[in-house]
Design a protein around this nucleic acid. Sequence first.
RNA 1: GGGCGUGUAACAUAGUUGGAUAAUGUGUCGGCCUCCUAAGCCGAAGAUCGCGGGUUCAAAUCCUGCUGCGCCCGCCA
Length: 595
Amino acid sequence: MKILRMHVEPALGAALESMGIENPNWKSMLAQSREHSQGDLSLPCFPFAKQLGKSPNDIAEGLSQSIEVGGAIGEISATGGYLNFKAGAIWLAEQLLSGKVRIGDAFGNKSDTGRQVLIEHTSANPNGPFHVGRARNAILGDTLVRLHRLLGNEVRAEYYVDDMGKQVGVLAWALDNLSDKDVESILEDKDTVSTKWSDKADHTRVRWYQAAQKLRKDEVNSQKMEQEIGKLVHASEHGDESVLQQFHNSFQPVLDGMLETLARLGIEFDQFTKESMFVTNGDVAKLTETLSQLDIHGVADNGAEYLDLGARGMKGKTEFFFKRGDGSSLYATRDIAYHIWKWNQCDDLINILGEDHKLQSKQVGMTLQELGHKIPEVLFYSFIKLPEGKMSTRRGNVVFMDDLLEEAKEHASQIVRELRSEYSDQEVSHIAESVGRSAIRFNIIRVSPDKGFTFRWEEALAFEAGSAPFIMYSHTRALSIANKCVDNGIDVDIITDKVLDLTNTDSTLPKSLVDLLRCMAIQNDVLERSVKQCRPNLFANQVLNLATSFNGFYRDCKIFDEGEVNELYLQISQLASKFLKTGMEGLGIIPLERM
RNA sequence: GGGCGUGUAACAUAGUUGGAUAAUGUGUCGGCCUCCUAAGCCGAAGAUCGCGGGUUCAAAUCCUGCUGCGCCCGCCA
């Protein structure tokens, strides 16, 4: 709790000095209490024991005696070798209610750190619909974008479009050479496109891609075909405008379909940058020229060029090829050019990548360093698999995001209709759509990115405690209390803006109220840590805790009782609803008015 | 074979700049709607934190060996 720390540190510093304790690290030892019931900040006194020849608890006791309690420091205790500080409840309430604790804005309207952050995420090859596995990148990336904005950073969300190379080449070739009939006969053993998505190009065009991939494996046809595709790819890599245009016409409708899905999840981008740009504008040529001059540069028999990263401490595979024997560039080479370009436009650079890109990313990073550039921050995530095993479009073992969104909405509709029969169809639909997307996002964002994730329908559609709907529900409760007050002729706005004099308030505020205050007081601390460590799941957990704390407060503190409003409770409820709202926006959960 | 990551209650997870009695949800068992939305709340049972060693006043957290799982080791993207 940063706001408390500011008050504790001076007092504690003086107390340590007076006891003759010399330890330059004491500030970092003073940490958030593990035992929540003991306090907000705690100092373990074990390391001082040897120096003073006293027991840790005696030291803690001694320190506690020499620090004055009052105001911010509500309570000091010495237990089991720890010195515990608890924030004063009234002080905490005053700090929060007077607006001294920042609430933030997840949409970046009030940028105030002045830091420019560029986050590249998703960047999936535009060759087919999003499945749940691919979506982990998008959800992680978008959440990070939102959290940075909430913190006050200026963020640009960027999608790097792979508009050249083999994958798009195959798609373009197929669209040019195969008829509807060809595709259907080649894929006769595969399920057809669901009629629901028959007008979405990501679902329809992927059939052409799949058919071509199947043909390529067929020995009879493959040679000629491979040559033709190879020609296209080669042309694209040398910046042939007409081929790049053909590629663009092939993939753009697919990409549009994918973006439609992402938009439904609340994910949008500020900019799309095409890979081919770095070939056509000459950046790649300049880069390869520079790389050829480096000390660690090497040439293979056929003229291909590489860097010996082993000389810089790389373990495992040490040769990093940046130029083919035929002189063309490789994906990673273009990626380096892209990174140099990105670095000219921001202070911080973050990439969201699947764990399969670890080696590649390391090579890019080391090369950037070799060229005197900074290394980007990279958030790696482990793949999502299904209970049946690895997700694979080819084997038909796949869950499409479009289907998941539909399923989640349908499931939510059923629940709303059951619970709130008085709601109109339109409202049910709106609530269900919001609940569905929020639940899907939260289900994925709550787990640590480096851990494997097994997608289960029953978990994705569980709307109970520990889910987004649980948080959404707490938020609507807060709003409904305010509405009830309004219905009873109370001017909520006037009470909300009133400055309450808490000096004479009974200091024994309900425990659940104080817990809610403490939870709100650390929201920014958690946000900061979550952003700094690139771990959105930490903040997801915080918002969940906030919702739980609010529910406890709601249980114990009657805001409107027997015609009377408790003004302090109402103010706290209003404040909590704001914290919940911004927290939810930071996670991409939709704050509803009622549900 | 080499590199990187991961293993926490029946299940899914949180917690790793070392710090107290390892937290939460599902599931199980028991309680709470004449009372601001029960998608909620309260309580109970349930864990040798993968296994062995080491460092430390203190290890789920750091080091090391083993082991299960995942990813990578293309002049592919």
